[in-house]
Design a protein around this nucleic acid. Structure first.
Lengths: 250, 250
DNA sequence: ATTCTATATTTGTAGGACATATCCCTCAAA
DNA sequence: TTTGAGGGATATGTCCTACAAATATAGAAT
C-alpha cells in the first residue's frame, strides 16, 4: 500500500513560526525518513495523501518534495509514485560552492579542508598507489609548463592534484576536492593578502614540487610523502594560520 | 531596478530532456548567478517576471526558487522580493547525511574524509591550540568512563574529537565532522567487518589514547601529534585500506 | 518635518483543471 | 497457454486563478 512509516507533525511546530509551511513539511518528511530508518526503495505516500495528512495544499507538498528530489533523497516517477533514494552526498555542494557567493571566512575554511584532506589522506594514498599511477603522475609533471617563479601552471596544478585525489579511491573526497579546485584559483586571483605567503619563502623552508612528491610516492615513503605534502602546501597553511591568529586577536 | 544580469536559457535545453522544467529553471538560475558573478544582496526578478522569461507557470518558478532558498542561495521576503544570499556550504549536508540512506561505499568514503581531516588538520591545530584548550581536553579525558577493552565511551569519544575540531577554528570543518559523528557510531554498530580492525591489534602497533594525544598537543609537537593521531585512528585506516584493496581486486 | 494611513506590490498558500507517463488489467489472437 | 494490443486507472508534471499576508512606498494629516 506504499506507506511511509508515519508522517508525524513535528513535535514542536513552534520552531517553524516565521518559517514557511514548506520548510515545516520538508523537515517533517526528512525527520520521518530518519526516524523510521527508511532506506533506498521505501515508498512514500502520494502527494494528495500527504497534502491531506499535513492539511496543506498540494502546492506546498510539491515544493517540499521538489527540494528532497533535488538533494537526491527521493525519486519520483509518474504513476509509480515516490521512493526514498540513495543521494550523492556532494551533489548539493556543486550548487552552493561559488566563490563570489561565499564569505571570505568560508572560503578560507574550505582551503583548510583541502589542505587537511590532502595531507591526511596520505596513509590511504600510499596504500593504493600503483605503478601506473606513478607513471601517470610523471607524465603530468613532465608536461608542466615552466613559468615564472611563484607563478604556477594552474591547469597542470589541477591535473596533478586531481590525479592524487583519484588515487585515494575516495569518490566523495574526489568530488569534494575537484569542486573546490576553482575556489583555489579564485584565492590566487582575488585574495591579495595571500600573495605574500605564496611568494615569500621562509628561511630554511624547502620548496617541494610535484616532482618531489612523486618521488616519495614511488618509494612508498609515507612519512616522507606526508611531510613533503605539508611543505608543498605550506603557503596555504601559513595563510590559514595567519588568518586564524589575526582573528583570535580581535 | 533590481535585475539579475540576464536570465538566459541554458545553451542546450536538450540536456534537460527527460528532466523536468523545474530542473531546467533551477540550473539556469544557478548558472546565471555564477556567470554574472552575483554576490550577496543582488536582486533577482520577481516570480511573475521569471515565469514570463522562462515561459513557464509560476508554479515551476516557485519550485525552482524553493530549492535555491533551501540551499541558502537566495532569500525572499514578501513585497521586497528575492536577493542572492550567502549560503552555509554545509547546510545541505545535514539533510542528506543519514547512514540508513547512504551506500556502504559512501559511508566508508566519509570515514576516509574524517580520518584525513583529523590527521591533516594537525598543522592548524598545533598553531591554534591554547592552554585553555588543553585544560578542556584534559577535563574530557578525565571524565571518560572506563569500559571494557575495545569498547569506547562513545559520548566521551565524540566530546573529545568535537573539541579538537573546535580548536581548528574551521567552522565548515567543524560542521562537517560534527555531522559525521553519528555516522561513525553507525559504523561501530552496523558494520560487522569493522569489528576485527577495531579489536585486533597488529604486532608492534602502539595504542594511542586521547590522553596521549593531549600530551603531544601540550608539547606543541606537530610531527608527534600527527603520527599519534594516525595511530589513534589506525583501525579506521586499516579498515578503509582493506576495503580498497578488496575492491580493486574485483 | 513627522507620524499615520492607505495602497500597491510581491511572496505564500489553496485548489481546480488538464497533460503525460506508466502500471495493470482485460480481452483477443496465435 | 502464451503473447500482444488496447484501454482504464493512477500519480506526477504543469498551468491557471484567486486570495491571504506582509511590507515598502507614497500620500494625507498633524
Amino acid at each position: 500500500m506504499g506507506f511511509i512509516g508515519l508522517i508525524i507533525y513535528p513535535t514542536n511546530m513552534e520552531d517553524y513560526k516565521g518559517a514557511t509551511l514548506v520548510d515545516w513539511v520538508e523537515n517533517s518528511i526528512i525527520k520521518d525518513i530518519r526516524d523510521n530508518k527508511l532506506s533506498k526503495g521505501a515508498e512514500i505516500p502520494n502527494e494528495l495523501e500527504l497534502a491531506e495528512k499535513f492539511d496543506v495544499g498540494r502546492n506546498v507538498i510539491r515544493e517540499s518534495l521538489s527540494r528532497l528530489r533535488m538533494l537526491g533523497i527521493i525519486e519520483s516517477r509518474k504513476r509509480r509514485g515516490m521512493v526514498v533514494a540513495q543521494p550523492n552526498v556532494m551533489a548539493a555542494f556543486h550548487k552552493v560552492v561559488n566563490p563570489h557567493m561565499l564569505s571570505r571566512e568560508t572560503i578560507i575554511d574550505l582551503l583548510g579542508m583541502r589542505v587537511s584532506l590532502e595531507i591526511g589522506s596520505a596513509p590511504m594514498i600510499i596504500n593504493n598507489v600503483t605503478d601506473e599511477d606513478i607513471a601517470a603522475l610523471k607524465k603530468i609533471v613532465a608536461q608542466e609548463r615552466v613559468t615564472k617563479k611563484s607563478k604556477v601552471d594552474i591547469e597542470a596544478e589541477k591535473a596533478f592534484h586531481f590525479k592524487v585525489y583519484e588515487i585515494s579511491k575516495n569518490k566523495a573526497m574526489l568530488d569534494f576536492l575537484s569542486l573546490l579546485l576553482p575556489v583555489f584559483t579564485f584565492v590566487y586571483e582575488n585574495f591579495s593578502d595571500f600573495d605574500r605567503f605564496n611568494k615569500g619563502k621562509k628561511e630554511g623552508q624547502r620548496i617541494v614540487r610535484h616532482k618531489d612528491l612523486v618521488g616519495y610516492l614511488e618509494a612508498r615513503d609515507l612519512p616522507g610523502y606526508q611531510k613533503a605534502m605539508e611543505d608543498h602546501l605550506i603557503a596555504y597553511i601559513d595563510f590559514i594560520n595567519y588568518w586564524n591568529n589575526q582573528e583570535s586577536e580581535k
